[in-house]
Write a protein that binds this DNA or RNA. Sequence first.
DNA 1: CGCACAAATCGTGTCGACACAGAAAATACA
DNA 2: TGTATTTTCTGTGTCGACACGATTTGTGCG
Lengths: 235, 235
Amino acid sequence: MAPPSKPEKSAERKRGSGAQYVYNILRNEIIDLTLEPGRPIDEIQLSERLQMSRTPIREALVRLAGEGLVTTLPNRSTVVTNIDFLNLHPFFDAITLMYRVTTRLAADAHKASDLEVIRARQAEFAEAVMAQDALSMIATNREFHAAIAAAGRNHYYEALCLRLLDEGRRILRLYYSSFDDRLPREYVDEHEGLIAAIEARDIARADELASAHADQIVAQIRTMISRDTRHKIPL
Amino acid sequence: MAPPSKPEKSAERKRGSGAQYVYNILRNEIIDLTLEPGRPIDEIQLSERLQMSRTPIREALVRLAGEGLVTTLPNRSTVVTNIDFLNLHPFFDAITLMYRVTTRLAADAHKASDLEVIRARQAEFAEAVMAQDALSMIATNREFHAAIAAAGRNHYYEALCLRLLDEGRRILRLYYSSFDDRLPREYVDEHEGLIAAIEARDIARADELASAHADQIVAQIRTMISRDTRHKIPL
DNA sequence: CGCACAAATCGTGTCGACACAGAAAATACA
DNA sequence: TGTATTTTCTGTGTCGACACGATTTGTGCG
């Protein structure tokens, strides 16, 4: 609940960076669930916390609304968008397809430099898993798949994939922090398999592995949700 | 070049609708190519034309930037995003996939009311083709596929599909207005086929027809572009 | 005691003004 | 005449203030 870092009383930041600054902070706090879903965001309160006028804050909120991370209630307030547990099916459907498509494209269109970046992300991911750091694992997993999407060189897919990964981070964050924190090392191996398929430019295998990877993640989330449901409705 | 409609000197509009109003106007003008790609958008000029302060105009621009319709050059100006003819491949790839996925989902998940809407859009489309009105055809085609995407009930796919359809409108608009305006009636028949497959809940056929439909559109755009290229490089 | 209505409160939507960055114009110099 | 430097100018980024809508609180009447 405490402000993550007290911003300088004023200035220090360059002109034009204000909205971006607010955007980054809010985005991280929303994805990390520091700002819980459904919580109203008060522009004035924010402007006091971040030591700047409402204008750049409103700009950040408009951007976040465009990405669906906040919801604007006209003439009332803007709230952190709720995670809709009843409509998770479209999410699972879309992220599975995007995992497949981006991995296929990466296998087809990647350059050597792309693979370097992907390997670096994978190393960070593996490190997070080794350290049993769930939060870091969630974040690095996002970056890993983002790197694959970037290697595919299709901005449309990449943008949708990033959006889905961020939504996924919120969901994962919700469950990993409240339930078990055992981090399955299989994910590391699955990622290695993806990398190998991409490097070999084996599109069919990349597709297959990505599909299986997505299925496994979906299955795990489903398990966590059902566990959660049971927990929420005690006998 | 003339302002489409002189807005009331002031007021008349309800509170909270300002940014939305500007957004709609700009969006239409960008997609209709009334605002040519690359043209800088002057906030002050716009505020004078639309008789309102720069604040709601900036909000509209931020939203449009989020959708990629305008590009913000920091501390300089925002310009209408250029159509990148060299990178059309990702566009073709994505719209083909989205046509397929949304049509499949529509075949699977549509309700009776969805079909009514789709049929209504198809009627408007057919009317535009009959009237040989290229501009109207482009617009109604967009609405037709948007209705199919809506029937699929996956917001992620729907959002991407809408974005692609709008970009497609810009491209089509560019070529239909400068080259031949003969409107192929086959499109009407293809649309009918899509509707039939959706109604029959025949997912495989819906996929197949959507794929063929997309291929045909892509082929036609490609033809127009190659014609255009020849035109731009005379011997 | 409960309900309809009025007043106050809260927060957003919009406005006009100022400050700074970048580009264009003007000037100086070789 | 061409190039480097300064100045002007245009237009964005940010600010503080006001106005209106929605909610909440307070009040009067049944």
